[in-house]
Amino acid sequence: MTSLKTYVITRVLLTIPMIFILLTLVFFVMRVLPGNPVIAMVGMKASQRYIKQLEHELRLDKPLWEQYVDYLNRLLHGDLGRSMIWGRRPVINEIMDHFPATLELTVWGFIFSVLLGLATGVVAGVKEGGKMDFAMRVYSIVVYSLFIPWFGMVLQLIFGVWLHALPVGGRINPLLTPKHITGIYVLDSMLTWNLPALSSSIRHLMLPSLTLGIVLSGIYTRLVRSSLIEVLGQDFIRACKSRGLPERSILFKHGLKNALIPILTMMGLQFALLLAGAVLTETTFSWPGIGTFLMERIEYRDFTTVQGTVVFYAIFVALISLIVDLIYAYIDPRVRY
């Protein structure tokens, strides 16, 4: 029990420097890179007075280290600042408006990519060096190379325009929007037992989440394959055979289960890839998540919102990797006991 405690404490403590480094990186990118962020935001033609006023407001007229301390201090109190446009709402509220959409998309994309990756990875790993193994390795490279916007548009053309089977953009038929509980439409419509909303939101989710899921499944193919090959070569698998256990139970109950442990430890990194892919997916499918939100605010040169969104990404990624590692500790008995 003590080893688990030590693990959890160490892991939680390790998250702090990680977040700190990422926040510093964001600060560095936003302030220290060549160029004045205010001018980058409002353009060269703005009046000197307006620029001065904005600089003062963003505390850019203070020494750099003071800005840095101030920046960290505000974040510590959960303050991401206020938007520079449109009613100057707190950035955190704006992010929270868009976060459920991104979460919904990435979770579904994640499910598709893991299912596809598991199936293809197992087919490849069962017989290393075989024809199917090669075919699945090619699959993994091909799907990873599918440029998300292009692949998304092709799916839109096939399923939306040609087959008229699925909607090509948006999250839901706006008339059917369910009562806001979590902001995740599939969940909200299930909670309120709103079947039309459920069906509409799932239909809208299909193409974007499949696009994201298929492209990223190639990574899981590789991970599952190499991990499974390693596990199947271990002594205890041969020992299982020597006891006459059925092939299927050796492969799934003993082989795959053990192979998934190292993959789990890499889930955090994979989730980051998912978030990056989601930016392109959201843009392609006009999906109103954080990705489209970030791009919109970059276009409007809303400096504080851009900074706040990136900070949000950083904290989110760090927390996900923390959660993944804690799940791992719970699942692997060698850490748990």
């Binding site: 990422l22 990118v29 060549p34 980058a40 990404y313």
Partner: peptide
Amino acid sequence: SLIMDSIYAFPGLILAIVIAAMLG
């Protein structure tokens, strides 16, 4: 290693987006 791992863990495209947006 800690610095590099932190950057590595951050979604690459999003980092590139922000830097590119700031640089022009």
